[in-house]
């Protein structure tokens, strides 16, 4: 579904990505792992054209998308759930969902599915985004990406700063939505990532250094320790 081939991305003068390659097979969840500052978020932003890569190829469903404008890339069916609960605080929950419609009636079609994943949101529909708790905002951010028919979701740090019980809820929701959508997941919390994803890619200092099946990585304590610093 998504193939990133040896991309190089600069932010200002800084060479952030120095060769990242990864493949996201359709219907799977792929976890993008690595330490803080390794380039995980920049990889997602490069796919989306927010920080366009200077070299390399990004192929989505057989089309090369590097160099296209962000809103054109999004319109191909790539949804983004940014880190830090990036909702619109001045809009209500309903408006946050409505604004994500790409075709009229998207929200009406997906409403039942979205509220089955996040029943809380239905109750809060009229509140403004600023009045939601952190967990509710994160749910809304994920829900918003589900409104249009996205073929691929890029989810950045969904568990960051959330209470354990909310993380469980979020994981369950991601597991359920992955039945309909392919997911590329950036996640610091290795336990969360390992329980959700079937594949992994590790990024270290702007380079993709290792990839494979999550089931193999879980037993590879040395790799986990070396690249992720987790035990």
């Amino acid at each position: 579904m998504l193939e990133v081939q040896n991309i190089h991305t600069f932010i200002g003068q800084f060479h952030i990505l120095e060769g990242v390659s990864l493949t996201v097979p359709a219907g799977s969840i792929v976890a993008l792992l690595g330490r803080n500052g390794a380039g995980k978020t920049t990889t997602l932003k490069s796919v989306l054209g927010l920080t366009p890569p200077r070299a390399g190829k990004i192929i989505f469903n057989g089309q090369e998308i590097q160099g296209r404008r962000s809103f054109d890339i999004a319109a191909l069916g790539i949804g983004f759930v940014p880190e830090h609960r990036a909702i619109f605080r001045d809009l209500s929950v309903a408006e946050n969902l409505r604004i994500a419609e790409r075709r009229k009636g998207d929200f009406a079609r997906k409403e039942a599915f979205i509220f089955s994943l996040f029943p809380d949101l239905q109750r809060l529909i009229k509140l403004s985004g600023a009045n939601l708790s952190g967990g509710q905002q994160q749910m809304l951010a994920v829900a918003r990406a589900l409104v249009p028919d996205n073929k691929l979701l890029l989810i950045d740090e969904p568990s960051e700063g959330l209470a354990p019980v909310i993380i469980e809820q979020m994981m369950e929701a991601i597991r359920q939505l992955s039945a309909e959508t392919t997911v590329l997941l950036v996640e610091q919390n290795f336990i969360v990532a390992s329980r959700l994803a079937q594949h992994y890619v590790i990024i270290e200092e702007g380079r993709s250094v290792q990839h494979g099946l999550m089931a193999d990585l879980v037993n590879d304590k040395e790799t986990i320790h070396r690249y992720l610093g987790a035990a």
Partner: peptide, 24 residues
């Protein structure tokens, strides 16, 4: 209107509006 709501979204965070597929 929906158009006006997108304007508010742009004020809050233009990149997020772009990511939803809007030509801001």
């Amino acid at each position: 209107s929906p158009t006006g709501r997108v304007c508010i979204a742009i004020r809050e965070n233009e990149n997020r509006a772009l990511m939803l597929g809007y030509n801001t």
